[in-house]
Amino acid sequence: MSVTVLYFAVLREAAGINEEQLPVPDSLTALYSLLRERHGFRHAQNQLRVACNGAFCEWQHAPADGDVIAFIPPVSGG
């Protein structure tokens, strides 16, 4: 049982990969905490949006087997 985590912008740069498969976490908060430690992400949880299966969701969303999760950092554009 696993989830796919997608990385964008500065998170992709820090992780050095576009995506990875991980065991289904207990929570999105726990997952981000693990990834922050593993990849050295500097953004706090409250600075990110989280999406599951292509739709924004709340941090309290319970991840399930097969979910595709993306943590979206703040971006600027012009």
Rank of each mutant, 00 (worst) to 15 (best):
M1T: 04
M1H: 06
S2F: 03
S2D: 08
V3D: 00
V3F: 01
V5I: 14
V5L: 02
L6G: 02
L6S: 03
L6I: 12
L6H: 10
L6P: 01
Y7C: 00
F8V: 11
F8E: 04
A9S: 13
V10L: 10
R12C: 05
E13I: 03
A14S: 11
A14Q: 09
A15E: 06
G16S: 11
G16F: 10
I17T: 14
I17S: 10
I17P: 02
N18F: 13
E19R: 11
E19S: 11
E19L: 06
E20S: 12
E20R: 13
E20F: 08
E20L: 08
L22K: 14
V24M: 12
V24Q: 12
V24S: 12
V24G: 11
V24K: 15
V24L: 14
P25Q: 13
P25H: 14
D26G: 02
D26W: 00
S27D: 15
S27K: 05
S27V: 07
S27I: 05
S27R: 05
T29M: 09
T29V: 14
A30F: 08
A30D: 12
Y32K: 06
Y32C: 04
Y32L: 10
Y32G: 07
S33T: 12
L34S: 09
E37Q: 08
R38E: 01
R38F: 01
R38V: 01
G40M: 06
G40R: 07
F41Q: 00
F41V: 01
F41I: 01
H43L: 14
H43G: 00
H43M: 03
H43I: 00
A44K: 13
A44H: 12
N46Q: 09
N46W: 13
Q47R: 15
Q47H: 10
L48S: 05
R49D: 02
R49N: 06
V50P: 00
V50D: 00
V50H: 01
A51G: 07
C52N: 04
C52D: 00
C52F: 01
G54Q: 05
A55E: 15
F56P: 03
F56V: 10
C57L: 03
C57E: 05
C57P: 01
E58T: 07
W59T: 09
W59F: 15
H61D: 07
H61M: 07
A62Y: 07
A62W: 04
A62G: 11
P63L: 15
P63R: 15
P63S: 13
P63C: 14
A64N: 15
D65V: 13
D65I: 12
D65Q: 15
G66Q: 06
G66P: 03
V68I: 10
I69C: 03
F71Y: 11
F71H: 04
I72M: 07
I72W: 04
I72E: 02
P73K: 06
P74N: 14
P74D: 14
V75G: 13
V75D: 12
V75P: 10
S76T: 14
G77K: 14
G77F: 09
G77Q: 11
G78C: 10
